[in-house]
Design a protein around this nucleic acid. Structure first.
Length: 237
DNA sequence: GCGACAG
DNA sequence: ATCTTGTCGC
């Protein structure tokens, strides 16, 4: 699939912030989709030795959760890690991977915040707007906001507040396990986003830190191998 | 001023 | 992220 919106990535910090402010107005915070048949998980791993980022996208059937397709892409690191500008570091390889997807997902779970962000434009929202696809922001720690501790049962949640504005939910995906920070990415409501996360989480026996997308990516990387000749990632089967 | 700060 | 100390909260 191809991005609906294109913009340069080699921006200075100031321009990157300006771009976020412009694109943030495009984020749709309500459910805008038909049947969700295919769900995708996406995450990025950092290769210290080669100074590259490896992105993996796993597309699966939303009902059976059977993996339908996995795509992996690698890119040289070209943006430092700056809180609030995370997407400029991790999206390039993710976009590259999405361009090679054959099965367009109806919903994408991202390892990173959505609108729970200083300018309401975290990685999940950024990805959602670029491809105009429903996305959910999903982080193991918060970037912004305050919240009470949610109940100890799976599905319990507490509002994440930036002053008086609700920007997400702290969601318990497993009994007594550390909760995760869920926020709107694009074209989905917070309520629906949390329902999907709670529904999907148990299927992957999330680790205590609960990185949903990360689980999917580890699965993807396990079946992929980097070709010595082409330098591209290919399925190991 | 000091601390906090997705991965 | 990754590494690592200490055991705790404003």
């Amino acid at each position: 699939m191809k991005p609906m919106v294109m913009h340069p990535w080699d921006l200075c910090e100031t321009d990157a912030i300006k771009l976020q402010q412009q694109l943030a107005s495009k984020v749709i915070k309500q459910d805008q989709f038909d049947n969700i048949i295919h769900v995708a998980g996406v995450d990025v791993a950092y290769s210290k030795h080669s100074n590259t980022l490896v992105a993996a996208v796993v597309v699966m059937d939303a009902c059976s959760l059977q993996v339908i397709e996995t795509v992996v892409a690698e890119d040289i690191v070209q943006f430092p890690y700056i809180p609030g500008l995370f997407s400029f570091r991790e999206l390039p390889p993710i976009v590259k991977a999405f361009e090679n997807i054959k099965t367009t997902p109806d919903l994408v779970v991202c390892d990173g915040q959505g609108i729970a962000h200083p300018r309401r434009f975290g990685l999940a929202s950024h990805l959602g707007v670029l491809f105009d696809i429903p996305t959910i922001g999903c982080g193991k720690t918060k970037l912004l906001g305050k919240a009470e501790e949610p109940g100890v049962k799976r599905g319990d949640c507490a509002p994440l507040l930036d002053n008086t504005e609700m920007i997400g939910n702290v969601v318990r995906t497993q009994d007594h396990i550390k909760p995760i920070y869920v926020s709107i990415g694009h074209r989905i409501s917070l309520l629906t986003a949390c329902e999907w996360i709670v529904k999907l989480a148990p299927q992957y026996r999330l680790p205590e830190t609960t990185r949903y997308a990360d689980q999917l990516v580890r699965k993807a990387l396990a079946t992929y191998i980097k070709s010595e000749e082409s330098g591209e990632w290919k399925a190991d089967y």
